[in-house]
């Protein structure tokens, strides 16, 4: 592997972390949206809020890290994607603003009307943001973003069958991850009703995501032949792994093994991302921009990898501690002072 390959792998790892962690936060917003009227959906919303609250900001930083690694390691790709994809990226950025801010605002406000308003903004943008990010991914994967500044079509690059597929898939996957993760949280909170609700949702959205992915193969065959041929040849084992892990997670949910189900669901989604990477390797931007054509100078790649390795020493233990801390049962709310 070249230095550029290493940096790309790091970036893909960060993207995987974003999809698995940040994606689930979006999915929480999806379930918030469909939880029903404020009385009926209240307990679900509380559970979602409690699970997301302490961790969403850290989860969100993965996206920033991906972006920064992209412009550091592959500046020409960054310029090409962000100029051609100007519209969906701006919409996704606005969605990110609406979601993060309204989540925090809802937490800090009182009174039904305001909480409802902020809640609706939070939930709505939780669906739109992954959709638009997905359309960007679909446009890149179907070869609609050539190298160069704004060389692609600024509308059809993200408004096309593969982008639509990827956008919907992103929403479904986010919902599935969130529901699976929330099962264990519901059990810890000791609520059989919530557990049942999220288990049904996890299984339902798992099937939906699987169906979209399967049906999507037909779309890709017509609309993204390069990706299709990669997925059905070199990347086939990874695709199979994804499907197997997804089915396993559903079986685990049915049998009540919620923690292992999380791992299995995460594996299913991660494998989907890596299947894309494997299918497209070594092309970064279709039709003819390979990794080495678009990477930064070697000295930059080396410094970035070095700094990331040092940073990881600080980051990984901190992250693990955070997750560990908030996965333990909540103590009785202590009166301050």
């Amino acid at each position: 592997m070249t230095t550029a390959d290493w940096l790309l792998s790091l970036m893909w790892l960060a993207l995987t972390a974003y999809v698995l962690l940040g994606g689930a936060d979006f999915g929480g917003g999806f379930w918030d949206l469909v939880a029903g009227g404020s009385a009926r959906g209240r307990h679900q919303r509380e559970l979602i809020e409690e699970s997301i609250g302490p961790v969403w900001e850290a989860n969100h930083v993965w996206l920033i890290f991906v972006i920064v690694l992209c412009w550091t390691g592959f500046p020409a790709v960054f310029a090409a994607v962000s100029s051609t994809m100007y519209i969906p990226l701006t919409l996704a950025a606005l969605g990110i603003i609406a979601r993060g801010a309204s989540f925090a605002f809802r937490k800090a406000s009182t009174g039904l009307a305001r909480r409802r308003l902020f809640g609706a903004a939070f939930a709505g943008s939780s669906v739109l943001t992954p959709f638009f990010l997905g359309t960007v991914a679909g446009g890149v994967a179907s070869g609609r973003v050539p190298i160069g500044i704004a060389e692609g079509d600024i509308v059809t690059s993200w408004w096309n069958p593969t982008s639509a597929l990827a956008g919907v898939l992103a929403v479904a996957v986010a919902a599935y991850l969130a529901a699976v993760y929330l099962c264990a949280d519901a059990r810890r909170a000791g609520s059989a009703v919530l557990l049942g609700a999220f288990r049904r949702r996890a299984i339902g959205s798992g099937f939906a995501a699987g169906a979209i992915a399967l049906g999507g193969v037909l779309v890709l065959r017509r609309d993204a032949p390069f990706l299709f041929s990669g997925l059905t040849t070199v990347a086939l084992p990874v695709v199979v792994l994804s499907a197997a892990a997804g089915l396993t997670s559903l079986a685990l949910l049915v049998r009540g093994h919620y923690l292992v189900a999380r791992v299995s669901a995460a594996l299913a989604v991660a494998a989907l991302l890596w299947a894309w990477a494997v299918a497209q390797y070594p092309m970064l931007l279709l039709p003819d921009t390979a990794i080495d054509d678009a990477s930064a100078r070697p000295e930059v790649l080396q410094v970035t990898l070095l700094v990331s390795a040092v940073g990881a020493v600080l980051l990984v233990p901190s992250l693990l501690w955070m997750f560990w801390l908030f996965q333990r049962p909540a103590p009785r709310k202590a009166e301050p002072g």
């Binding site: 412009w71 550091t72 500046p75 960054f78």
Partner: peptide, 27 residues
């Protein structure tokens, strides 16, 4: 994009470091 295409890699280092600072801050 005209700046980032050429110079994104030149100023990438402080931004990468900033990414780690954000992580620590957010966590």
């Amino acid at each position: 994009p005209g700046m980032m295409e050429t110079y994104g890699q030149v100023i990438g280092l402080p931004f990468t470091l900033e990414g780690f600072a954000f992580f620590i801050e957010a966590i």
